[in-house]
Amino acid sequence: MRLQLAKQLLDRQIVDRDGRLVGRVDDIAFAIDAEGVPYVDCLLSGHGVLGQRIGGRIGRFLVSIAERFAEEVPVPPRRIPLAQVAEVDSAVRLRCRAADLPPSPTESWLRRHMIDRIPGADHARR
């Protein structure tokens, strides 16, 4: 796959097989193969990762929010292996379902401590 990483991959919306929104490509992790050639290993997602990428005071603020609403600190980024990417157009489309990926720590935290406690949280409106 030939891609301009910064232009076509970074900051794109990640969408799963069923159209669920998974997150954004907040950063990209590289790895180095046996011959010393770097390659794109995973897409990283989560506002902690985004905070580290932006840096500065605003970045630290985003990281601290990510840590406030998480069960474990430091919050590990969500890693999406490049092998799961089916297609890149106006969004990054995955082969798998969102449920097969590690869940977002903030989403899980807020679900457990807030939204699930409100009656009617699992009613779909449509």
Binding site: Q13, I14, R20, L21, V22, G23, R24, S45, H47, L50, A98, S104, T106, E107, S108, L110, R111, M114, I115, D116, I118, G120, A121, D122, H123, A124, R125, R126
Partner: peptide, 23 residues
């Protein structure tokens, strides 16, 4: 901005961050 699941098509628990911001 953050790429979260949003909207009223899914249940609130599937869009917990969206519904938290709403609240």
């Amino acid at each position: 901005y953050f790429g979260w699941q949003w909207g009223k098509r899914v249940t609130p628990r599937e869009a917990a961050r969206f519904h938290t911001v709403l609240l």
